[in-house]
Amino acid sequence: MTPGAIFTQLVHLALMLALAPLLVGLVRWLKARLMGRRGPSPLQPWRDLAKLARKQPLLAESASVMSVATPYLALAATSAAAALVPGFARGMALAPMADLILVAGLLALSRFALALAAMDVGTAFGDLGAAREMSFAAFAEPAFILSVLCFAILAGSTNLDAIGAAFADGGPGLRISLLLALLALLAVALAENGRMPVDNPATHLELTMVHEAMLLETSGRYLALWEMQAALRLMLWLSLLAALFLPFGTAPAFSGLGGWLLGLLAWVVKLGALAVALAVFESAIAKMRVFRVPEFLGAALLLALLGAVFLFLSTGLA
C-alpha cells in the first residue's frame, strides 16, 4: 500500500460522495428538460441535503434505536462499497478488497438496514415497502451473481480491479455474453436503485410503494443520510457499469497526474452519458405493475444465465 494508492483512494471516495447528489440532480434536471419543464438546478440535491442535515429530526414515539443507528450503518456500508468500485483510476489502496460479491454483500447490508428502519416504527407503508424491497432483491441478486459469473470466466477473477485491467485492453473481444450480461446488469441496476420501470423515484406515497414508502417516518439528519445513501447507490451502480463495460480511459495503477486527469475526464464523460441514457429511458417508459417486476428481473436472470452458457460454449470450442 503505497502513499500514492492511499491518496488515490481518498480522492476517489471524496469524489464519489461529492458527485453523487450532483448526479441525482443532473438526472432530475435532464428528465425535467425532456418533459418540457425547466427543472431545478442540478445543485438542488446538495442544497436539500445541507438543509436537512441542520434540521432537528423528529422521531416517532414507537421508534427504537434502529431508526437512529441504521442510517449511519447503511450509508457507511454503501460508502464502503463505493470506495471499492474503481472510478477514475485503478490500483487504489483498497483494490485487493474490491470483490464483486463483497460489493453485492455491502449493498445487501445497506438494504437490510433500510428495511429495518422501515419496520422500526410499525406502519403499514414501511412494512409494505420493506417486504417489496427485499422480495425484489431476491430476484435481482441471482441475476447479478450470474453476470458476475460471466466476468469471472472472462477475467478469471471476481476482483473489480483485475476485471478492469483485463478488459481495458479489449482482451475478451466483442461477445454476445457481455451484451447479455450488460442487459442483465442494467435491469438489476434499475431495480436496485428504484428507477423507472420498477419504481418511480419522483413521487411520494401514492404511486411508489417501494423505496420512498420506507422513508416516510424519517426526518432531519436521518433523512439526509438516507437521501445521500440513495444518491451514492446510483453513483455506485453507474460507476460499476462504466468500470465493467466502458473500461477505456481509466488511469492504470501508478500513473502520473496526466493519466489521472485523463481518467477523471473519461469518468465524468461516462457518468454523464449514462445519466443521459437513464433520463431518456425513464422519460420514455412507463412504470410497470409491481407483480410484473419478478418477470422483468427473471428475464434478466435468464439472459445472464444464457450469457454464461454461451461462454461455456465458446470455451468448449476454443
Binding site: 473481444g173 466483442l174 461477445r175 454476445i176 455474453s177 451484451l179 447479455l180 454461451f310 465458446s314
Partner: peptide, 8 residues
C-alpha cells in the same frame, strides 16, 4: 467477434 455478436 462480429459474426458471433450479430448471430447472438
Amino acid at each position: 467477434d462480429m459474426a458471433h455478436l450479430l448471430a447472438g
